[in-house]
């Protein structure tokens, strides 16, 4: 199928991109890798009047070390992210999860920031960014602002980005020593979206779990944390029984959707099972 008509600009600078976007009004959209947008354009689920191509803006690409954090440019392709030495050293959960996103060809074009800004509830990377405490740097007509991941994901396909704002980069705090991690993606075929995903990061100290973060994919309109499980894990023994007891609460308070791919109660069941598995891997149990 062929998209409806639209205008296209490829600005040379972020400032030009922001002004093109704000000049384009409500129906202007940022084009990064386009791997989520293009199918929507083709089946005409989206009909923007203007696409602002930000894929080549140098300031949106690349990965850098910023002391206690790494900074991933929003337009950095998944393929680059998952093979980047800084990511592998300081945010290996991102590398591991990115390798599960879509397929190799899509990972060559699709971007880290694009996945976050698209905010599909079944997306894997929003959950991971939430668990890692990412900070999103946004640029708009009034300059830049930083939004925590916990405030960035607002609703189905909706983020804190204003229509005239562009996601510039994502700051990921480095996980220090002692942290383990895992992402469990549950899907029916290898190229299907997650029915449920669970991200876990666990810091062990002397045989106990000192700190645990558990993020849930596709259990709500936007990624969430399994708060009861996290607090049950804090200070718990790093063993199978303690983890199982905590994981049993992973779906507490969730109200996931029922759709073609799964009914709500199965999603909740999966959240508990996958949380147990992810935390066990992350805790090295």
């Amino acid at each position: 199928m062929i998209p409806a008509t639209f205008d296209y600009v490829r600005p040379d600078s972020l400032a030009d991109a922001v002004s093109a976007l704000s000049g384009g009004g409500e129906d202007a959209k940022v084009l990064a890798g386009g791997q989520s947008l293009m199918p929507m354009l083709r089946i005409r689920l989206a009909s923007p009047t203007l696409l602002v191509d930000c894929s080549r803006l140098a300031e949106l690409r690349g990965i850098s070390d910023d002391g206690d954090a790494i900074v991933i440019g929003a337009s950095t392709p998944h393929h680059d992210v998952m093979h980047d030495p800084l990511v592998m050293a300081h945010a290996p959960l991102i590398a591991r999860t990115t390798a599960m996103v879509a397929d190799p060809a899509i990972r060559h074009r699709g971007t880290f920031g694009g996945s976050l800004a698209h905010a599909d509830p079944a997306g894997d990377l929003p959950t991971v960014s939430l668990v890692l405490g990412a900070q999103m740097v946004l640029a708009g007509p009034n300059g830049r602002r930083t939004v925590a991941a916990s405030d960035f994901f607002v609703d189905y396909f909706t983020t804190a980005l204003e229509p005239d704002e562009i996601l510039v980069s994502v700051r990921i705090p480095k996980l220090g020593a002692g942290w383990g991690y895992d992402y469990q993606k549950f899907h029916r075929t290898a190229q299907a979206w997650a029915i449920v995903g669970v991200a876990a990061a666990v810091r062990r100290e002397n045989g106990t779990i000192a700190e645990a973060r558990v993020g849930l994919t596709n259990m709500a309109a936007s990624p969430g944390r399994a708060a009861t499980t996290e607090s049950a894990l804090a200070g718990a023994a790093a063993n199978v029984d303690a983890i199982a007891a905590a994981a049993a609460h992973a779906a507490d308070g969730t109200n996931p959707t029922s759709d073609l791919h799964a009914k709500a109660d199965f999603r909740q069941h999966l959240a508990r099972v996958l949380t147990g598995r992810a935390v066990r891997v992350a805790a090295g149990v």
Binding site: I43, A192, W193, L260
Partner: peptide, 14 residues
């Protein structure tokens, strides 16, 4: 199941 994103044909990995 109106697209190949929802009608799941197995891939090599499946």
């Amino acid at each position: 199941t109106a697209t190949l994103a929802d009608y799941l044909i197995p891939s090599a990995a499946d």
